[in-house]
């Protein structure tokens, strides 16, 4: 079952592009990473799925229901915004309780457990919390009702490394229990370490989607040449890094052409390997400037 599915989902803010013809599929039980830098359209896509903004065109469904029925599927969704803002005059426990009441459920025991795991003091007022502690409040509100789907927009920003580790442990636990996790990030290592699949968004559209292994093993290769300082003239290389006696670049094209070009150069050594996810990401993003 596709838990999230978008077909040509488009959102323009006036003439400004938010997302354009976004096609995305997240299957049940996946731990899905949504990668892109600021302004790529990650938050717009997520906010559209959450029913906060209406798409300009295209379709989308969440948990099998169309966007028009978002109030129904939101019962089973836990959402964490990138910048969590709450009612400043409330105490943490009041806010968590208010969130549960809005859902019409009593999840106080699970909320207590999560607060304990995240070391969150529930007696404090919201306006006295640090950014990281506000994030923890958001995490508890998103997880306390044990939803089927977690949609999280840059969830680890503001959390210290220990809390990030605990947060992902909690999420993985939920995934193992059958939940689906969809989170956006521009921290590629956390996507690579935690996700089963990922999609890369550039200028509002998906430019690559697949398992982490597939994405890392995409046709782009990291080529390192020793003995030369520049990439061969006939080769279309990206992410070029020149050293004293070497050059490294990403290459996506006919491998025979690459070998033919290299044969005419004074190359001492060659290393061709699958790039890290970060390199794939940079590869797609450097196309932007071309």
């Amino acid at each position: 079952m596709n838990v999230i599915e978008t077909k040509n989902l488009t959102k323009f803010y006036g003439k400004t592009r938010g997302i354009k013809n976004l096609n995305l599929t997240v299957k049940e039980g996946e731990f899905f990473g949504f990668i892109g830098p600021n302004g790529a359209g990650k938050s717009t896509a997520i906010r559209t799925l959450m029913g906060l903004i209406a798409p300009t065109s295209g379709e989308a469904s969440v948990l099998g229901l169309p966007l028009g029925q978002c109030r129904e599927y939101l019962r089973d969704v836990g959402y964490l915004p990138s910048e969590a803002a709450f009612y400043n005059d409330m105490k943490v426990r009041e806010l968590i309780s208010y969130s549960a009441k809005l859902r019409g459920v009593d999840c106080s025991s699970e909320a207590d457990r999560l607060c304990s795991c995240l070391e969150l003091d529930t007696s404090k007022r919201i306006d006295s919390l640090s950014l990281g502690n506000r994030k923890k409040v958001g995490i508890v509100c998103a997880m306390q009702h044990r939803p089927k789907l977690y949609i999280m927009d840059e969830p680890t920003s503001g959390l210290d490394p220990l809390m990030q580790k605990e947060f992902f442990r909690l999420l993985r636990q939920r995934q193992q229990e059958g939940a689906t996790v969809f989170f956006s990030s521009h921290v590629l290592s956390e996507v690579q370490h935690n996700c089963t699949r990922a999609a890369i968004i550039r200028e509002g559209s998906i430019v690559a989607e697949g398992s982490i292994d597939e994405l890392s093993g995409t046709s782009a290769k990291r080529v390192v040449l020793h003995g030369v300082k520049e990439i061969p003239a006939g080769i279309d290389g990206r992410s070029v890094v020149s050293g004293d006696d070497s050059v490294s670049f990403l290459y996506q094209g006919d491998i025979k052409l690459l070998l033919r070009e290299l044969s005419s150069l004074p190359v001492k050594d060659v290393n061709i390997s699958d790039p890290e996810l970060e390199e794939i990401f940079m590869h797609y993003y450097q196309q932007e400037g071309r």
Binding site: L52, R71, E72, V77, P81, N88, L102, R103, G104, C141
Partner: peptide, 14 residues
């Protein structure tokens, strides 16, 4: 104004 609409409207409330 206080950015709490996102919190409120992402709950299952019409």
């Amino acid at each position: 104004k206080e950015h709490t609409a996102e919190f409120l409207l992402t709950h299952p409330v019409r």
